[in-house]
């Protein structure tokens, strides 16, 4: 299976393991993640304001390139996924926005709304199938209690993203179970870690993240798993002592990739 891949800037630097474990796992699962030739940073956040156009152009260019290649556009980072998908949705549903965007793009960059944006979790669930992944597990995550942390970016706004039930998601839990691990039930899994507010009010970010990690700890989790580098950073800084890992790290490990080399 060939798909276009949008790694995002953080995965090239601070979240290298999120990226490399995704690539290793994809290889084992027979998915060819073909990195776009000329992707640019998504900007990290989708600005809902109708008059923000320039900030969304980098996403549209990525969507356009994927469209030319005729393959779905896959991201592993929650933020990139969220921005790409919301931009795609705005382009498809808001003609005024679409026409403004077209004025910025070079003629050969034109986008026609034909790209399917997918998070790797979605690809694994819907196109590969967790039952098929389970068959390829060589190091099952036995005896590990894992708290799947979704945060905001994977789930909301649900009517645009449609990745999972925004209040009772299950995709990461299903993955954990497919990998032989135990997923704990906890209620803060879809609440915000504080995100970018870290640079405005580090105390607020810490308070939020501590609330999340202590809820995971109270639920008996040994670790928290996430798809977002910023969530991971905030949760690590909160200092609850609970380790945070990327879902691709668990996946790669369970599939028998040489993760420690990464």
């Amino acid at each position: 299976m060939y798909v276009s891949y949008f790694p995002g800037c953080t995965l090239k630097t601070k979240a290298v393991r999120l990226d490399r474990c995704a690539r290793k796992s994809a290889e084992i699962l027979g998915i060819e993640l073909q990195e776009l030739d000329s992707w640019q940073c998504c900007g990290g956040a989708f600005t809902s304001a109708a008059d923000e156009v320039a900030t969304k152009l980098s996403s549209v260019r990525a969507l356009a390139e994927a469209e030319r290649l005729g393959r779905p556009l896959v991201s592993v980072c929650s933020a990139c996924y969220n921005v790409l998908k919301q931009t795609d949705h705005a382009f498809k549903t808001d003609p005024e926005f679409a026409s403004k965007v077209r004025r910025y793009l070079a003629p050969d960059e034109c986008y026609n709304g034909g790209t399917e944006v997918l998070h790797l979790l979605e690809l694994l669930r819907d196109k590969v199938g967790f039952e098929n992944i389970a068959k390829k597990v060589v190091n099952p995550l036995k005896g590990v209690k894992i708290a799947a942390y979704y945060g905001c970016m994977l789930l909301r706004p649900s009517d645009v993203l449609g990745l999972d039930d925004p209040e009772n998601p299950s995709v990461m839990e299903e993955l954990i179970r497919a990998l032989g691990g135990e997923a704990v039930g906890w209620s803060q899994r879809n609440e915000c870690c504080g995100g970018y507010v870290l640079l405005e009010s580090p105390e607020l970010a810490k308070k939020r993240s501590l609330e999340i990690s202590s809820d995971a700890a109270a639920a008996g989790a040994d670790m928290i798993v996430t798809a977002c580098p910023l969530c991971r950073y905030n949760l690590d800084k909160a200092g609850s002592g609970l380790p945070t890992v990327y879902f691709t790290e668990l996946l790669a490990k369970a599939l028998g990739a040489e993760v420690d080399e990464i």
Partner: peptide, 26 residues
């Protein structure tokens, strides 16, 4: 938000994502 303020908070692990998002918001 100013670049100086970011420098004051940033550490080795701070992901780029945090910085670009914060500039977009602030």
């Amino acid at each position: 938000l100013t670049p100086e303020a970011v420098a004051a908070v940033a550490d080795e692990e701070l992901p780029q994502q945090a910085v670009v998002t914060a500039f977009r918001k602030y």
